[in-house]
Design a binder for these strands. Structure first.
Lengths: 305, 305
DNA sequence: CTGTTAGCGCATTCAA
DNA sequence: TTGAATGCGCTAACAG
């Protein structure tokens, strides 16, 4: 009959508020926004609510401020959906190991003490590189994300693994650091080719950079996939409509988000019955999606009319 | 000395919690994710925190549930960053007019009683259409978003205004409904050309659909911009790297988000001193960004080698 | 099993 | 100015 209980009093007496803190980054990218969408859905399903913080820099002071805000709010769990960057991640991890509130990380390197839900980026790196080799490309360059990101390092490690096995020399000339933006893919392609003109394929660490790398190639008079093979990473919904349609590594960020929330919920529930769960890492597997940008022998519909 | 006040007790005594509720939709799109990013930043700046709800359907029951959850949480303000859809928006607006909590809408039609922060979508529609006419295109089709969206209706109205003024007949044959996805742009282009083969330019209501419309055109053997001019909407960061680079309507979703939070804050502060602000609407202006996809006489670098 | 009561930890009021 | 008391509206422990 129009009566609603007072949350404030309820929170005070129960000593909890059913809020889960989520920290995110870079919502303009496919992975981040998909992860957040799924996290929100799952959190609602489990009758929590969600407080969101977005990070734009990676300095420990900002990270620390957000962490303490969340603890002050007395959230019941924290999902750290921010890229793991060398500059702060170990510091954060050790800080977190000393607090009570359960924390689950998305896309962070595995350790003894952290709960993590991550994509197997290194496998992704292997998949794309192997595919290009099988298509007959001889010298495969690599445009990375920022090198201080764990995800970048893993994708690069996957590429390196295959390329070393194939006996490549002077591997350093084949690598160029990007920053995920389309702009950096264009610049990156030019620099990479200047560095090592024999390159006949480029594995690009996300689809946005792959898009602009393809444009830059065309402008240099290189035909894709005949003169230059391109593979991207992510499989954003637009990738199939690029020119030419982009071969890429598909990841399912939804799986990462769902696993993270389930984990947090499990930790909270277990703690309710007095037991502490063991830290662990759940991996999500990427897959190869083959389209025209990497198929040398293709009778592509759009090629050269 | 390691002492932290208890938020629960603090909330209880003050009767408030400094939380602002944000409802969002479709974070995988440029506008939505940019708006949310800015909202989060501003909210933090003003020492509020943010609870996020994401909607995936538009039925009043889900909308109502979220609204009541937020009221039960006792949020101090609500930002409705969800598209205004015929099916629920009037119902919501009247519901909202009866609650105390201040609500600001993003991208909703103006009314007497609502606080709104909106892009002038109709102006955007005029800009793109006028540009295509000035470039000499004779019969300009239009691929819309879902027709029950306010934003769609406005963009369409802008196009219609110009096209009617130019004396077009059989306007219905020139319009095709899309759903914002790249997939629907492809389908849309085929259907549109089947409906009215004399079309020589298409204004597409977002950049994702414009991308796939360009691919579909190429596959039909139509050269862009010579056989078919294309203009998109949004100016996503990748649009400059499409093939060919996409002429589009630039919007600044950051402006919308910032205005909304400032408005909420102003309402809350005013109410603290006993005054109620007058509902109003703040408009954000879109702009035309000309690239190659609409320049018929262009000596395009990438055309036909 | 139902009804009563004692805090939860602060902010605010009141007395000193 | 400072210090002690009251109550915010529930939940949980307790007594009936």
């Amino acid at each position: 009959m129009g009566y609603a209980p007072n949350v404030f009093a309820n929170n005070l007496t129960r000593g909890q508020n059913n809020i889960i803190g989520v920290i995110g980054y870079g919502l303009n990218y496919f992975g981040s926004s998909s992860v957040l969408t799924v996290i929100e859905g799952k959190i609602n399903e489990l009758d929590f609510s969600l407080t969101l913080n977005l990070i734009d820099k990676f300095d420990p002071s900002q990270v620390e401020a957000i962490l303490y805000d969340l603890l002050a709010l007395r959230v019941e769990g924290i999902i750290w959906a921010v890229p793991a960057i060398d500059q702060y991640i170990d510091w954060l991890s050790s800080k977190v190991s000393r607090i009570q509130t359960p924390v689950v990380y998305i896309n962070k390197g595995p350790t003894e003490s952290d709960f993590v839900s991550a994509l197997d980026n290194q496998l992704g790196g292997r998949l794309g590189t192997t595919h290009l080799m099988q298509e007959g490309y001889q010298r495969i360059g690599f445009i990375t994300g920022p090198l201080n990101w764990w995800e970048t390092q893993q994708r690069l490690a996957g590429w390196r693994e295959i390329v070393v096995k194939a006996g490549y020399a002077n591997i350093e000339d084949l690598v160029l650091e990007g920053d995920w933006t389309a702009r950096s893919g264009e610049v990156g392609l030019h620099t990479l080719l200047a560095q090592e003109p024999r390159i006949d394929a480029v594995f690009v660490s996300n689809d946005q950079m792959a898009l602009s790398a393809m444009q830059a190639s065309r402008r240099l008079g290189l035909r894709i996939p005949d003169d230059l093979g391109i593979v991207g990473f992510d499989d954003i919904p637009e990738a199939a409509y690029f020119y030419p349609p982009l071969t890429t590594i598909r990841q399912d960020p939804r799986e990462l988000g769902a696993m993270a929330v389930e984990r947090i919920d499990a930790i909270i529930n277990a703690r309710g019955t007095g037991v502490d769960l063991e830290p662990n890492i759940s991996w999500s597997q990427p897959g190869l999606v083959v389209r025209e940008s990497s198929l040398r022998e293709s009778e592509s519909v759009n090629e050269t009319k």
